[in-house]
Design a protein around this nucleic acid. Structure first.
Lengths: 143, 143
DNA sequence: GTAACTGCAAACCTTTTGCAGCTTG
DNA sequence: CAAGCTGCAAAAGGTTTGCAGTTAC
């Protein structure tokens, strides 16, 4: 089985070009909010691609180690979430009640990072911002 | 066994004033970075206070529900971290390598929140900012 | 052909839960 | 005394791992 979609991309990272990786990469690419390993797994299953959950975890882990994806634990569940490490640099806003996430544009942090860099003698490589509250639908029925 | 340290505080929240709660509250109070349930548990053990890990979890959960503490998953481990919900509103900076956390002063977000509030019709109740990179000690030996 | 990848099942680790006994107000 | 806490042990998630078989290069 072969899929050449991202062949160069994967091999340039020292990774074999497998269908699983291509599909998982695509799923991350198509989502503009972070997803759990299980969500990825279910999406693959829906599209009738047979895969094991532990393979999903392994691929996501590789993506994270290679810097292709980012891992986080937004929303304070006990699940990890994964998203593509996009250059455009997105942040998210999470509804406390329904846990839906929305992406927000813009990031006012670049200059603040520089300040911290010099002040703390800390080599800043990135940041993560999560804003939370109640979304349009949930704000009426908070409890 | 009794300890009146925070008696009024607890009873005003509808909570019984127990030694465990007082001690856990103190531990959170004395730490300026988030801690795991296990760290709290070990600290109590060190000081020869016998307690069960599940009790620690239960107390921390109550604190979170009452708004006394905040739960997060900074540093992308699979462990939850807890910190006091201080009014001063602190953020943290985490070293990717040694995972040490430092607290940083100030938060430039209040006005940005307002913008989002009106733009997305989202009722913002708070935010969490994590900045990461390499600390002074680790920046020399990154890998 | 070989190194890398995957499936499966079991192990692991963190967190939660049921229940019985104990404490606080 | 009653309601609320706690300890203990067991269960319940989520994630990782060992191993054997398969695939990409």
């Amino acid at each position: 089985m072969q899929n050449t979609d991202n062949k160069e991309f994967f091999t340039s990272q020292g990774l074999k070009n497998t269908k699983s990786r291509n599909l998982i990469y695509e799923i991350l690419e198509q989502s503009d909010v972070p997803v759990t390993a299980e969500q990825v797994y279910l999406k693959l299953k829906e599209s009738d691609f047979k895969i094991n959950l532990s393979t999903v975890y392994r691929i996501l882990e590789i993506f994270v180690n290679k810097g292709i994806a980012l891992k986080s634990n937004i929303a304070d569940s006990n699940k990890s979430m994964f998203e593509l490490n996009r250059m455009e640099h997105k942040h998210h806003i999470v509804c406390i009640k329904c846990k839906k996430m929305f992406s927000i544009e813009g990031c006012p942090f670049d200059e603040i990072e520089k300040k911290i860099q010099s002040k703390l003698d800390f080599d800043v490589t990135g940041h993560k911002l999560e804003i939370f509250g109640y979304c349009k639908d949930c704000k009426l029925i908070k409890k």
